[in-house]
């Protein structure tokens, strides 16, 4: 459950960053011109909202919600530092985050 929240949050942050003109190229590269990835920012906000919803419905006395707020700086920092020093890292984390979301219901 934590994994799903974390994965969705990261994907949401990544999408928001990719939606900014100055960050789109290093993050999306050639894919930036793909039609389906227009306006990634909208997907970003949706993913963030969805991860927040899952955290709210976790039923563990608010702990997941606290975790959600705590993951924001962590996910954002990976992308920020990656953009400044090694864009490959935040790009590589995208499939990892997707895996976390897909595996979460199985654990």
């Amino acid at each position: 459950m934590t994994m799903a929240v974390a994965g969705l949050l990261y994907l949401g942050m990544f999408a928001l960053a990719a939606g900014m003109s100055r960050h789109a190229d290093p993050l999306l590269g050639a894919r930036a011109r793909h039609a389906a990835l227009r306006h990634p920012a909208r997907y970003g906000w949706a993913l963030l909202a969805f991860s927040f919803l899952i955290a709210c419905l976790a039923g563990d006395g608010g702990r997941a919600l606290v975790l959600w707020f705590g993951l924001i700086p962590f996910a954002s920092a990976i992308i920020l530092l990656g953009l400044s020093y090694r864009p490959a890292v935040p790009r590589a984390m995208v499939p990892v985050a997707m895996l976390m979301v897909l595996l979460a219901p199985l654990i």
């Binding site: 934590t2 702990r63 606290v66 975790l67 700086p73």
Partner: peptide
């Protein structure tokens, strides 16, 4: 309790540390 963070799991505790 939010300030004291005694409720926190190990992951949340490290996030408090990061913050």
């Amino acid at each position: 309790g939010l300030h004291m963070a005694r409720f926190a799991s190990i992951a949340t505790r490290w996030l408090y540390f990061l913050g």
